[in-house]
Nucleic acid binder design. Structure first.
Lengths: 127, 127
DNA sequence: GTCGCTGCAAACGGTTTGCATGAGA
DNA sequence: TCTCATGCAAACCGTTTGCAGCGAC
């Protein structure tokens, strides 16, 4: 049976409070403000658990390590800032992409990642 | 100055002959049929070099290690088979995606990955 | 008192690097 | 001959695992 620990609550809270997908390290940093001395292994173990139970989803990015965010019900994609590496949600989707696949291929899903500058970095650069 | 070695030629040949992006290990396996005993470090060093010189490009995939393919001039995307994990080129692109980004964000490029079953695996499953 | 959870440290696996040797030019 | 390139093995780094002690229930 699953227990409620200070560590697990802190991890859950950090992810729920976030406005963008976080790396395990970012989750640890956030959770440590509540539970000092928490170990990174605890973060990984709990992330895995939360993903399995369905309250958290993994955001996999091309060539970068995964981020974690609260489960959204809507289909969405992500934007990664080339400058600060942070990832943000992007709502909207180009729609049906099956027409791009070669003949005989069965398309089941897709991932779209936009790259560029986030508002913070674009503002800092031009301001 | 850059030298022409048997290893480098073999690696180049394997990538040029491939019809899809290859993993470093696949490149090694292919190159070893020509130069037995080649080491994986040599593959990594040469891939890096070929990417820098522009004749090979990296294909980064969400949650998977990079693949390598000959440089194509056309903008294209990729399809990864959920069953055999191989990656294939997909020609075509949904077009302008800047409209999906939040206000203040600057979109410079994008990556699109389709997932499903390749023709081989779909055929084997239904046949 | 159980037994799941945690922190620590070691293990892992793909990638990179240091070093002595080998081989293009 | 002069170096760049190679093979080997060790180092790296993010992630996972083994284990003994802790703490939720």
């Amino acid at each position: 049976m699953e227990r409620s620990t200070r560590q697990r609550s802190a991890i859950r809270a950090v992810i729920e409070a976030a406005t963008r997908p976080l790396t395990p390290q970012e989750v640890l940093d956030g959770a440590r403000t509540e539970v000092a001395g928490m170990g990174i292994a605890t973060v990984y173990r709990n992330l895995k658990l939360l993903v399995e139970e369905g309250s958290v989803q993994v955001v996999e990015l091309p060539g970068d390590s995964p981020r974690y965010e609260s489960k959204h019900l809507d289909h969405h994609h992500h934007f990664q800032c080339r400058q600060c590496d942070r990832v943000f949600d992007v709502h909207g989707c180009p729609g049906d992409l099956t027409r791009f696949a070669p003949t005989g291929f069965r398309v089941e899903s897709h991932e779209l990642t936009l790259y560029g500058q986030c508002a913070d970095c674009a503002g800092a650069a031009s301001g």
